[in-house]
Amino acid sequence: MIIIDGQESSFKVNNFANLEELLVKVMEQDYLENRVVTDVLINDESFSEIYPHQAEDIETREIASVEIRSVPVAEMAMSISRELYKVVQIMSEGSRKVAELFRQADDSEALETYQDLLEVIRDFLGMIGVLRNEFSLQEQKVFNEAVEEISSLLGEMTEVMENEDWILLADLLEYEFLPAVDKWKQVIHLIREDIKSVKG
């Protein structure tokens, strides 16, 4: 039995050799167009791959039921955009903390925290990029200015870091990076408005 979002599908588990074959076929259905799969349950137990193509190793003879749950892309995007506000907060707090540590001459702790901050920024920009590709933004100017500012600052901070000028890096984080991060709240708000108009 294969259930997709609470509805029994016409597909039969035993028509497929393995789980991957089954999932690929189900994903090709029009019903899942513009939807994101959130959960796959095998025999009522949550399944997620530990290694690539693990589903290929699971033979269907071991499976009694498959349940697939999904949400519309726009709904998923709204929930991601809500999370982005939290990420902006994390970036603000992180940059304050790094600046403070550099000023206290706790360089090793500061550098470690700074690396974590850079990772958060990379992930943040990645998520923003995905949303931007999925939902063409109407306010391109605001978005482009925010991206340009943060990219330019990241470049400058990398140079300062190479010169090991920790006090200058602390100043950049506190007086330039923090206000730049704050501007992303407006960008996220605009992205949410664009998603709502698509969802509407």
Rank of each mutant, 00 (worst) to 15 (best):
M76A: 14
A77F: 00
M78I: 01
M78D: 13
I80N: 05
I80Q: 09
S81Q: 01
S81H: 00
S81N: 05
R82T: 11
E83C: 03
L84D: 10
Y85R: 12
V88F: 02
V88D: 13
V88N: 15
I90K: 09
M91T: 07
M91P: 05
M91F: 10
M91K: 11
M91G: 15
S92D: 10
E93L: 06
E93N: 11
G94W: 00
R96L: 14
K97Q: 12
K97M: 10
V98Y: 06
V98K: 05
V98C: 13
E100D: 13
Q104A: 09
A105K: 03
D106P: 05
S108V: 00
A110L: 02
A110P: 06
L111V: 01
L111Y: 03
T113H: 11
Y114F: 15
Y114V: 09
L117D: 12
E119L: 02
I121C: 07
I121Q: 11
R122Y: 13
D123P: 01
D123M: 03
D123N: 11
F124W: 02
F124A: 11
L125T: 12
L125P: 11
G126V: 00
M127K: 11
M127Q: 13
M127S: 15
I128H: 11
I128A: 15
I128C: 13
I128P: 06
G129M: 07
G129W: 01
L131G: 10
R132C: 08
R132D: 15
R132T: 08
E134K: 08
